[in-house]
Design a protein around this nucleic acid. Sequence first.
RNA 1: GCUCCCAUCGUCUAGCCCGGUCUAGGACAUCGCCUUUUCACGGCGGUAACAGGGGUUCGAAUCCCCUUGGGAGUACCA
Length: 478
Amino acid sequence: MTVRVRFAPSPTGHIHIGGVRTALYNYIFAKAMGGSYILRIEDTDLERSTKEFEESQLLDMAWIGLEHDEGPGVDGDYGPYHQSQRMDTYHKYAQQLLDEGKAFYDFCSDQELEEMSRKNKEEGAPPYTGKWKDPAHWDEAKAKITAGEKAPIRFLVPAKDVCFTDHVRGEVKFPEGMVGDFVIMRSNGMPTYNFCNVIDDHLHKITHVIRGEDHVNNTLRQVLVYEAIGAELPEFAHVSLLIGADRQKLSKRHGATSVKQYRESGYLPEALANYLCLLGWSHPEEKDVFTVEELANKDVFSLGRFSKSHAVYDIEKLKYINAQHIKRLSVDELHLRVAEFMEEDSYYHRQTGEWQKAFVGLYQDKIQLLPDLNEKIKDITREVVEPSNELEEILSWETTPAIKQYLASELEKTTGDYVDADTFSQWMDYCKKELKIKGKPLFMGFRGVLTGQNHGPDLKVLIPLTPVANLKKRIESL
RNA sequence: GCUCCCAUCGUCUAGCCCGGUCUAGGACAUCGCCUUUUCACGGCGGUAACAGGGGUUCGAAUCCCCUUGGGAGUACCA
């Protein structure tokens, strides 16, 4: 059996990190099993679905590396992949259920429905007990429909316990009578999620449904629909949900929750994917820095390694993972990725590619996020030294004035825009040999005088990247 | 309310299914030390958890029950 999985978002907003997490699990499982990953757009909610959101979701998914084998823009044997283009199919199945007496038209008014569900709740009965579920009224209902009246179609829920097997939760059982006859077709002719989702999974030959735990209750209804249309059940895996530090469902209150925000904040897609996979799933070798490609292997990724409990989303660890992935990049690659995150008027953009690469390489293991480099560029552009206690201390050493005087005169003699690394080494050698300064006073003296800071990256690389003019101004301002 | 689900360091988790090898392992964060004559990176080490109560058993983080706490669903949303 070839594994076929799908991710089926609704284009009603920007894609959420919880959404890509389940998409990632589906994708990785498909790749690990040599199967296919299908993307289906569930745009049956006319009110909330927009083309803009769909495009935004497609963009974010592409960014994180979720390439689908079938779906929008990628033809497959089971299209179309937009639910809005599959209406005929849903109507056909709905009609079949109607004909077989497994569904019925419901003409109860909203008010009737409301009273009914309130009363039934008190009595512990299933929510829907309207008269239209009684076959005795079905001819009357058909007549009304023929006469042009609009009504939703409800699924006639059979009186039976329902159970299914879940890869993360084991056997899940629901007692009879806990769901009422639910709507499968709205009065506007659009199918509802619990109906078209099942039809499509069946027709798309989906073998494994990996989705959030918030769907377990839906699965009860869906199992019933599978049975009603005579379809075989896929295998299920309901993955635990993501929650915030306050243990509440993750929402905007908890900060950035859309993939878009992470993309724009300078997180690496491989890092976000890495971190998201770690929430609720664990690597068999307990690794925590990896790529999606490394996971897409059946010896590594398995449905049995999902955690049953909720996971608190912790941005600190995401940042750590991001820093790890930044370090794994080649300087050339990092250079490419950094460009869009440097401020538009940054000094950085006015430099040669070679200079940029040297700069990026210098800070590669010192940043967590790509835009952190904007702060680091100040080490280059700073013209005036800002006083600090640490700097005062360095300046107060008896060796420092000599270094300062020497450096000032050397800079004065320098004609180019930058000093080269060799020249800088010669300066150090001179101070070491002629001025007899060594160790901490030498290095810190140089650092203090040339950068005005008491810490920072390797001077041998930093100084040749700094314009001589700035170096001069700094010394003057001391 | 009802139905379903969950419960190991502050956080993510390993271990649980197939009880002893667990004086409970790893990672983030945190603290300390070392290293790079700075910072960061890295290395080493510390603090820190089996929710509570009952069983079962020679023996329970692991199996069972209860309590408590948390989550999800309960739409003509998905």
